[in-house]
Computed example of a mutant assay.
Amino acid sequence: MPRLATPLTESQIRALEPRATRYCVADGNGLVIEVMTTGTKVWRFRYTLNGRRQPLATIGDFRMISLRVARAKAQKYAALVEQGISPVATARRDRGAESKADVLREAAELYVASALAGKSDEYRRTTRRALDKDVLPALGNKPIGAVTADDIVAICERIKRRGSPKMALHTRNVVKRLYAYLIARQLATSNPAEVVPARSIATFDSRTRVLSGAEIGVTLRTIDTSNIRRPLKLALHLLVLTMARKSDLIESTWAEFDLDQARWTIPAARLKAREDRVISLPRQAVGLLRELQRARNSERFLFPSVRGDDRPIAKSTLNQAVKALGLDVEHFVLHDFRRTASTHLRELEQQSGVGSDLTTQQEAAADATPQRHMLQSWADFVDSQIDVARQAANGMA
Results as ranks from 00 to 15, higher is better:
E10P: 15
E349N: 10
P370F: 10
L318D: 09
R339I: 15
L325K: 05
Y111P: 07
V329N: 04
P282A: 04
K142P: 02
R3M: 02
D248L: 07
G217R: 01
V382E: 07
D248C: 09
K323R: 14
Q75K: 14
V240C: 09
M243K: 14
R129C: 00
R229T: 11
L182I: 09
L327A: 11
L271W: 08
I65D: 09
A366L: 09
V210H: 12
A97F: 13
Q361H: 10
R46W: 02
R294W: 00
P7Q: 02
R290M: 11
D205R: 12
A379T: 08
P282Y: 03
I216A: 00
P143D: 15
T242E: 06
T317Q: 13
P197M: 12
L325M: 11
L16S: 13
A314I: 12
K176V: 08
R390V: 01
D94T: 07
A262H: 04
D205V: 11
L348T: 04
Y77H: 15
L327F: 07
R71M: 03
I313D: 05
R294K: 12
L139A: 09
R162Y: 00
E122H: 06
V103A: 12
E291I: 01
P370V: 09
I223N: 06
L67V: 08
A244V: 03
I155H: 03
T38V: 07
D260P: 14
S252F: 00
M1G: 12
V196C: 08
R338Q: 04
R390E: 01
M243T: 14
L281T: 04
A72F: 09
L116H: 05
D260K: 15
D61E: 12
D134E: 09
A202E: 09
P165F: 09
P231W: 02
A295H: 08
T90R: 12
K246T: 15
R128S: 04
A365H: 05
V240N: 06
T40K: 15
S226V: 06
A5V: 14
T340K: 04
T6Y: 08
G60P: 10
R207E: 13
R300I: 00
A379N: 09
